[in-house]
Protein backbone atom coordinates (compact mmCIF):
# COMPACT_ATOMS: atom_id res chain seq x y z
CA UNK A 1 0.00 0.00 0.00
CA UNK A 2 2.68 2.45 1.07
CA UNK A 3 4.71 1.54 -2.00
CA UNK A 4 1.79 2.04 -4.36
CA UNK A 5 1.00 5.45 -2.90
CA UNK A 6 4.64 6.42 -3.21
CA UNK A 7 4.83 5.14 -6.75
CA UNK A 8 1.90 7.39 -7.65
CA UNK A 9 3.51 10.37 -5.94
CA UNK A 10 6.74 9.86 -7.82
CA UNK A 11 4.81 9.51 -11.07
CA UNK A 12 3.21 12.84 -10.18
CA UNK A 13 6.65 14.33 -9.61
CA UNK A 14 8.39 12.99 -12.68
CA UNK A 15 5.74 12.35 -15.33
CA UNK A 16 5.47 15.97 -16.49
CA UNK A 17 9.24 16.18 -16.81
CA UNK A 18 9.40 12.96 -18.81
CA UNK A 19 6.67 14.26 -21.08
CA UNK A 20 8.63 17.47 -21.67
CA UNK A 21 11.67 15.46 -22.66
CA UNK A 22 9.68 13.32 -25.12
CA UNK A 23 7.87 16.34 -26.48
CA UNK A 24 11.14 18.14 -27.10
CA UNK A 25 12.02 15.65 -29.82
CA UNK A 26 8.97 16.40 -31.92
CA UNK A 27 9.38 17.17 -35.56
CA UNK A 28 5.99 18.87 -35.81
CA UNK A 29 5.21 22.58 -35.86
CA UNK A 30 3.13 22.43 -32.75
CA UNK A 31 2.91 20.56 -29.49
CA UNK A 32 1.02 17.29 -29.41
CA UNK A 33 1.50 14.15 -27.44
CA UNK A 34 2.76 11.75 -28.42
CA UNK A 35 4.53 13.55 -31.28
CA UNK A 36 3.65 12.25 -34.71
CA UNK A 37 7.25 12.34 -35.85
CA UNK A 38 10.53 12.71 -34.05
CA UNK A 39 13.61 14.75 -34.73
CA UNK A 40 15.92 17.34 -33.28
CA UNK A 41 14.72 20.29 -35.34
CA UNK A 42 13.62 22.31 -32.29
CA UNK A 43 16.99 21.76 -30.66
CA UNK A 44 18.60 23.07 -33.82
CA UNK A 45 16.21 26.00 -33.64
CA UNK A 46 16.88 27.02 -30.05
CA UNK A 47 20.61 26.61 -30.55
CA UNK A 48 20.74 28.83 -33.60
CA UNK A 49 18.02 31.36 -32.88
CA UNK A 50 19.47 34.70 -31.79
CA UNK A 51 16.96 35.34 -29.01
CA UNK A 52 17.43 31.95 -27.43
CA UNK A 53 21.18 32.15 -27.80
CA UNK A 54 21.33 35.58 -26.21
CA UNK A 55 19.17 34.68 -23.28
CA UNK A 56 21.08 31.46 -22.76
CA UNK A 57 24.39 33.34 -22.79
CA UNK A 58 22.99 35.94 -20.40
CA UNK A 59 21.89 33.27 -17.94
CA UNK A 60 25.19 31.48 -18.24
CA UNK A 61 27.26 34.63 -17.71
CA UNK A 62 25.19 35.76 -14.74
CA UNK A 63 25.18 32.35 -13.04
CA UNK A 64 28.91 31.90 -13.66
CA UNK A 65 29.67 35.13 -11.85
CA UNK A 66 27.06 34.70 -9.13
CA UNK A 67 28.24 31.21 -8.17
CA UNK A 68 31.84 32.07 -7.17
CA UNK A 69 30.80 35.41 -5.72
CA UNK A 70 28.14 33.87 -3.54
CA UNK A 71 30.49 31.05 -2.53
CA UNK A 72 33.19 33.51 -1.46
CA UNK A 73 31.00 36.08 0.30
CA UNK A 74 28.77 33.41 1.82
CA UNK A 75 31.80 31.33 2.79
CA UNK A 76 33.40 34.28 4.55
CA UNK A 77 30.17 34.99 6.39
CA UNK A 78 29.74 31.34 7.37
CA UNK A 79 33.30 31.26 8.67
CA UNK A 80 32.79 34.52 10.50
CA UNK A 81 29.64 33.23 12.15
CA UNK A 82 31.24 29.92 13.06
CA UNK A 83 34.40 31.41 14.51
CA UNK A 84 33.23 34.45 16.37
CA UNK A 85 31.26 34.92 19.49
CA UNK A 86 29.40 38.13 20.17
CA UNK A 87 26.07 39.32 21.39
CA UNK A 88 23.41 39.31 18.72
CA UNK A 89 25.13 36.65 16.65
CA UNK A 90 21.87 34.76 16.26
CA UNK A 91 20.21 37.95 15.00
CA UNK A 92 22.97 38.47 12.43
CA UNK A 93 22.51 34.90 11.25
CA UNK A 94 18.74 35.37 10.90
CA UNK A 95 19.35 38.58 8.98
CA UNK A 96 21.80 36.90 6.63
CA UNK A 97 19.40 34.10 5.73
CA UNK A 98 16.31 36.33 5.61
CA UNK A 99 16.30 36.61 1.76
CA UNK A 100 15.30 32.94 1.75
CA UNK A 101 11.92 33.54 3.34
CA UNK A 102 11.28 37.04 2.05
CA UNK A 103 8.95 36.68 -0.96
CA UNK A 104 11.16 37.20 -3.97
CA UNK A 105 8.45 39.26 -5.57
CA UNK A 106 8.88 41.87 -2.85
CA UNK A 107 12.66 41.76 -3.11
CA UNK A 108 12.37 41.96 -6.90
CA UNK A 109 10.22 45.07 -6.96
CA UNK A 110 12.30 46.72 -4.25
CA UNK A 111 15.51 46.06 -6.17
CA UNK A 112 13.80 47.33 -9.31
CA UNK A 113 13.09 50.56 -7.50
CA UNK A 114 16.74 50.85 -6.45
CA UNK A 115 17.75 50.08 -10.03
CA UNK A 116 15.53 52.84 -11.39
CA UNK A 117 17.04 55.18 -8.87
CA UNK A 118 20.56 54.28 -10.01
CA UNK A 119 19.52 54.64 -13.67
CA UNK A 120 18.31 58.17 -13.29
CA UNK A 121 20.27 59.65 -10.43
CA UNK A 122 22.40 62.52 -11.56
CA UNK A 123 26.14 62.43 -11.16
CA UNK A 124 26.52 58.67 -11.00
CA UNK A 125 24.21 57.19 -13.57
CA UNK A 126 24.85 53.48 -13.52
CA UNK A 127 22.39 51.80 -15.88
CA UNK A 128 21.26 49.22 -13.39
CA UNK A 129 17.96 47.92 -14.74
CA UNK A 130 18.24 45.66 -17.73
CA UNK A 131 21.99 45.24 -17.06
CA UNK A 132 23.67 41.96 -16.34
CA UNK A 133 25.77 43.40 -13.52
CA UNK A 134 22.65 44.30 -11.62
CA UNK A 135 21.22 40.80 -12.19
CA UNK A 136 24.44 39.50 -10.67
CA UNK A 137 24.05 41.73 -7.62
CA UNK A 138 20.43 40.69 -7.15
CA UNK A 139 21.08 36.97 -7.63
CA UNK A 140 24.04 37.07 -5.27
CA UNK A 141 21.79 38.46 -2.55
CA UNK A 142 19.31 35.65 -3.16
CA UNK A 143 21.91 32.87 -3.21
CA UNK A 144 24.12 33.91 -0.28
CA UNK A 145 21.80 32.37 2.35
CA UNK A 146 22.08 29.00 0.63
CA UNK A 147 25.87 29.33 0.51
CA UNK A 148 26.03 30.29 4.19
CA UNK A 149 23.98 27.30 5.27
CA UNK A 150 25.76 24.79 3.03
CA UNK A 151 29.22 25.95 4.05
CA UNK A 152 28.14 26.40 7.67
CA UNK A 153 27.06 22.74 7.76
CA UNK A 154 30.50 21.74 6.48
CA UNK A 155 32.24 23.88 9.07
CA UNK A 156 30.29 22.26 11.85
CA UNK A 157 31.68 18.85 10.97
CA UNK A 158 35.22 20.21 10.83
CA UNK A 159 37.46 19.19 13.73
CA UNK A 160 38.64 22.44 15.28
CA UNK A 161 41.71 20.68 16.68
CA UNK A 162 43.06 20.54 13.14
CA UNK A 163 43.12 24.31 12.93
CA UNK A 164 44.66 24.64 16.36
CA UNK A 165 47.26 22.06 15.39
CA UNK A 166 48.17 24.13 12.35
CA UNK A 167 48.39 27.29 14.42
CA UNK A 168 50.63 25.77 17.04
CA UNK A 169 52.85 24.55 14.19
CA UNK A 170 53.31 28.16 13.19
CA UNK A 171 50.53 28.87 10.71
CA UNK A 172 48.98 32.32 10.98
CA UNK A 173 45.20 32.88 11.03
CA UNK A 174 44.96 33.29 7.26
CA UNK A 175 47.45 30.54 6.45
CA UNK A 176 45.40 28.20 8.61
CA UNK A 177 42.27 29.06 6.67
CA UNK A 178 44.09 28.63 3.37
CA UNK A 179 45.98 25.39 4.08
CA UNK A 180 43.62 23.63 6.47
CA UNK A 181 40.09 25.01 6.58
CA UNK A 182 39.44 25.51 2.86
CA UNK A 183 40.74 22.10 1.73
CA UNK A 184 38.71 20.39 4.43
CA UNK A 185 35.42 22.10 3.62
CA UNK A 186 35.89 21.71 -0.12
CA UNK A 187 32.68 19.71 -0.49
CA UNK A 188 30.67 22.41 1.20
CA UNK A 189 32.24 25.06 -1.03
CA UNK A 190 31.47 23.07 -4.17
CA UNK A 191 27.95 22.55 -2.88
CA UNK A 192 27.50 26.27 -2.30
CA UNK A 193 28.88 26.99 -5.77
CA UNK A 194 26.50 24.60 -7.50
CA UNK A 195 23.43 25.60 -5.49
CA UNK A 196 24.14 29.24 -6.24
CA UNK A 197 24.68 28.49 -9.91
CA UNK A 198 21.43 26.56 -10.25
CA UNK A 199 19.38 29.07 -8.28
CA UNK A 200 20.75 31.95 -10.33
CA UNK A 201 20.31 30.08 -13.60
CA UNK A 202 16.67 29.30 -12.74
CA UNK A 203 15.81 32.62 -11.12
CA UNK A 204 12.69 34.21 -12.55
CA UNK A 205 10.76 36.80 -10.61
CA UNK A 206 13.50 39.20 -9.52
CA UNK A 207 15.02 39.26 -12.99
CA UNK A 208 11.52 39.64 -14.43
CA UNK A 209 11.25 43.00 -12.70
CA UNK A 210 14.68 44.14 -13.77
CA UNK A 211 14.71 42.95 -17.38
CA UNK A 212 13.30 44.65 -20.44
CA UNK A 213 15.44 43.60 -23.43
CA UNK A 214 18.30 41.78 -21.76
CA UNK A 215 16.43 38.57 -21.07
CA UNK A 216 17.60 35.53 -19.21
CA UNK A 217 16.55 32.03 -20.16
CA UNK A 218 13.63 31.64 -17.71
CA UNK A 219 12.24 34.97 -18.85
CA UNK A 220 12.61 34.07 -22.50
CA UNK A 221 10.74 30.82 -21.81
CA UNK A 222 8.05 32.72 -19.95
CA UNK A 223 7.48 35.30 -22.64
CA UNK A 224 7.43 32.63 -25.35
CA UNK A 225 5.02 30.63 -23.23
CA UNK A 226 2.68 33.59 -22.79
CA UNK A 227 2.69 34.09 -26.54
CA UNK A 228 2.21 30.50 -27.67
CA UNK A 229 3.05 26.98 -26.57
CA UNK A 230 5.82 26.32 -29.03
CA UNK A 231 7.89 23.09 -29.06
CA UNK A 232 11.02 25.20 -28.62
CA UNK A 233 10.00 25.52 -24.97
CA UNK A 234 10.16 21.77 -24.51
CA UNK A 235 13.61 21.63 -26.10
CA UNK A 236 15.09 24.44 -24.07
CA UNK A 237 13.45 23.01 -20.94
CA UNK A 238 15.04 19.65 -21.64
CA UNK A 239 18.42 21.30 -22.01
CA UNK A 240 17.94 23.06 -18.68
CA UNK A 241 16.81 19.80 -17.08
CA UNK A 242 19.92 18.06 -18.37
CA UNK A 243 22.20 20.76 -16.98
CA UNK A 244 20.45 20.73 -13.61
CA UNK A 245 20.47 16.93 -13.41
CA UNK A 246 24.18 16.89 -14.15
CA UNK A 247 24.93 19.45 -11.44
CA UNK A 248 22.65 17.63 -9.01
CA UNK A 249 24.59 14.43 -9.62
CA UNK A 250 27.82 16.25 -8.82
CA UNK A 251 26.19 17.48 -5.62
CA UNK A 252 25.07 14.00 -4.71
CA UNK A 253 28.52 12.53 -5.29
CA UNK A 254 29.81 15.15 -2.86
CA UNK A 255 27.20 14.26 -0.26
CA UNK A 256 25.79 17.77 -0.44
CA UNK A 257 22.16 16.87 -1.14
CA UNK A 258 21.86 16.15 2.54
CA UNK A 259 22.92 19.67 3.35
CA UNK A 260 20.20 20.94 1.07
CA UNK A 261 17.86 19.10 3.41
CA UNK A 262 19.40 21.15 6.21
CA UNK A 263 18.69 24.35 4.31
CA UNK A 264 15.03 23.54 4.38
CA UNK A 265 14.98 22.94 8.08
Amino acid sequence: MLFIVNALIFIFIFAPLVIVVIQSFTNENHMGFPPESYGVRWYAYVMTDDDWQNSFMNSLIVASIVAPLSMIIGGMAALGLDRSDFRGKQAVFSYLIAPMVLPHIVLGMALFRIGLFLDTSEGFTLNATDSLWFYVVAHTTITIPYAIITIGASLQTLDRNLEEAAQILGASYFKTIFFITIPLIKSGLIGAFIFSFIISFDEFIVTYFLATFNQTLPIQIYSTLMFQLEPSIASISTLMLALTALLTLVLMSRGQLVSFGKIIK
Binding site: D159, N161, L162, E164, A165, A166, L184
Partner: peptide, 8 residues
Protein backbone atom coordinates in the same frame (compact mmCIF):
# COMPACT_ATOMS: atom_id res chain seq x y z
CA UNK B 1 46.14 16.30 20.71
CA UNK B 2 44.04 13.54 22.13
CA UNK B 3 42.80 12.67 18.63
CA UNK B 4 46.22 13.58 17.16
CA UNK B 5 44.60 16.11 14.77
CA UNK B 6 46.57 14.87 11.78
CA UNK B 7 45.63 16.78 8.64
CA UNK B 8 43.52 14.23 6.77
Amino acid sequence: FQNYALFP
